[in-house]
Each structure stands twice: as structure tokens, then as C-alpha cells.
């Protein structure tokens, strides 16, 4: 069975490499270090006109033995601020990677679907409740936070000076950078709440 999986991954690899999207460097697939092609690394670029624009997101893709009858296990390696992606673990909430998988879907369609997910978050079916709440209640803060995370983790080029300053401020208090950023993001960039949160 694993034979079908390996055969298919080889084909899909070629498909992604030859695809138009790859030519426009929107998606990219890497074989990674493993020799059996069961662990791959995908890359998607943040879609334009979103807070993720300009960012490059790395995805860990694990192909199950039963592929393509079961979906690949995909998670974000790059930290991202998105209602349907866990900001802590990178786990993705996307129906096609769970119960809506179809055997005819390929790594290319999965990568494109994830890109589409970045462009249209589904706060009603959240993976990260804090992010989803912020998305619904403070869309402006959400947008700024996501942009800031893009710049901080995904090589994005749009800085948010206000947030960067706050992170630096907390770092000056002796907190680790990532922890400081998470605490600030979770507390709608209220420095006092974030400090309390970090100390508790």
C-alpha cells in the first residue's frame, strides 16, 4: 500500500514543481531530509491584500501510509496569527485535511487550499479561540497583530512599529521575545495585562 503512496507522492512532487503556481513562487515543495518521501516541507507565500502578504510560511507535511485514502498531516512550522491555525502548535483546522478529504486531492491542491485559508479565515470554526475572538471583536487589532507576526516570523516586510516597541519594552523587563509577543497578542497589546499574564 505504501507503494501507491510513494508512487503518488513522486508524481505530485513533479506536478507541484511544474505547476504555474510554483513558477510564480506562490507554492513550493521540498523533499526534506527523509529518503522515503513520507515527510515533506511545503512553502506557501502569504496571499496579497492580507496581513500575511509578503510572508513565507513553511509547512510540515507528513504522508500517512494509507495515502491517498487518508489526508496528509499538515501543520504550520512558521508561527502565524490566524483564527484557524494554532498560534502555539501550528495545527490547522481545515475540513479537507480532516473529514472532507477526497482521494483525488493532491499536495498542490492542499497547498493552494491553505493559501486560500489564509485569505479567508473562518472565525466560526476556530482552531485558536483567542485569535478568533480578537478577529471578531477587534478586527483592526487582529489585522495589525497578524501583520506584526508576519514580519516577525515569516520574513514579512511590513513593520508595525507600535507593536515592535511594546515587544522590546517587555524584553527590556527580562522576558523572552516570543513569550512577550504571545502575551501581548493574547491581551490585545495591553502591556499591563500582558505583564500580569507573563508573571502569573
Amino acid at each position: 500500500m505504501a507503494n501507491i503512496a510513494v508512487q503518488r507522492i513522486k508524481r505530485e512532487f513533479k506536478e507541484v514543481v511544474k505547476s504555474d503556481e510554483a513558477a510564480k513562487s506562490m507554492i513550493h515543495l521540498d523533499m526534506g531530509s527523509s529518503e522515503n518521501m513520507m515527510e515533506l516541507t511545503g512553502t506557501i507565500s502569504g496571499p496579497p491584500d492580507t496581513p500575511y502578504a509578503g510572508g513565507t510560511y513553511i509547512l510540515d507535511i507528513r504522508i500517512p501510509e494509507t495515502y491517498p485514502f487518508n489526508p496528509p498531516k499538515v501543520k504550520f512550522n512558521t508561527k502565524i496569527w490566524h483564527p484557524n491555525i494554532s498560534s502555539a502548535t501550528g495545527a490547522i483546522c481545515l475540513d479537507i485535511l480532516k473529514d472532507q478529504w477526497a482521494a483525488a486531492m493532491t499536495l498542490r491542491t492542499v497547498l493552494l487550499s491553505l493559501q486560500a485559508l489564509l485569505a479567508s479565515p473562518e472565525p466560526d470554526d476556530p482552531q485558536d479561540a483567542v485569535v478568533a475572538k480578537q478577529f471578531k471583536e477587534n478586527p483592526d487589532i487582529f489585522f495589525q497583530t497578524a501583520t506584526h507576526w508576519t514580519q516577525a516570523y515569516a520574513k514579512g516586510s511590513t513593520p508595525v512599529p507600535e507593536y515592535s516597541d511594546k515587544v522590546t519594552q517587555l524584553m527590556g523587563m527580562g522576558f523572552e521575545e516570543h513569550k512577550a509577543r504571545v502575551a501581548l497578542s493574547n491581551n490585545n497589546w495591553n502591556v499591563e495585562c500582558a505583564t500580569e499574564n507573563l508573571l502569573s
Partner: peptide
């Protein structure tokens, strides 16, 4: 068996 009947009885494409 891992998916709903509605999913697997539909065309994968």
C-alpha cells in the same frame, strides 16, 4: 471507513 458515507460515496474529484 474513516470518513462519512456521504464523502466516500461521492466522486473524489
Amino acid at each position: 471507513k474513516q470518513f462519512e458515507n456521504k464523502i466516500v460515496k461521492a466522486c473524489p474529484e
